[in-house]
């Protein structure tokens, strides 16, 4: 307990206000510190990874999107990696177009990681 007051009795409104302000400031401060640390740690990690000869930082930070060969890539679309398992490129293109159409999300904002043909289980 931080204070020795008896909390089974009523609290003056001024004190309640003061503690509330202190409370929200504490929450914001702690989360701000965490935010700064995240920025710091992520920068350090990216520098280390870049030095270790990994992919360039910018290439890794781009959200992965995918487009199979033969499908024109819309402007601003990011090239990524798409794993096709027992699926030809034409079918993959059709599937991605359908997902984009049904979800209403433009292809350049979708990220496909893999498309796999499922076994027909009967």
């Amino acid at each position: 307990m931080l204070f020795t007051s008896d909390y089974s009795i009523k609290m003056p409104i001024g004190e309640a206000l003061l503690r509330s302000v202190l409370g929200i400031v504490t929450v914001i401060s702690i989360l701000a510190v965490i935010a700064l640390l995240i920025l710091l740690v992520s920068k350090v990690i990216r520098v280390i990874e870049a030095k270790a000869g990994n992919k360039p930082v910018e290439a890794e930070t781009a959200a992965p999107s995918a487009t199979p060969a033969g499908v024109p890539m819309p402007a601003g679309m990011n090239q990524g990696e798409l794993e096709l398992v027992d699926t030809d490129e034409k079918t993959a293109a059709v599937i991605m177009a359908i997902v984009s159409d049904k979800s209403g999300i433009p292809l350049n904002r979708l990220s496909f990681k893999s498309i796999k043909l499922m076994e027909d289980k009967k």
Partner: peptide, 11 residues
């Protein structure tokens, strides 16, 4: 990470 500030403000 700015998301954290939004999460704090929403308290």
């Amino acid at each position: 990470p700015v998301s954290l500030l939004l999460g704090a403000a929403a308290q």
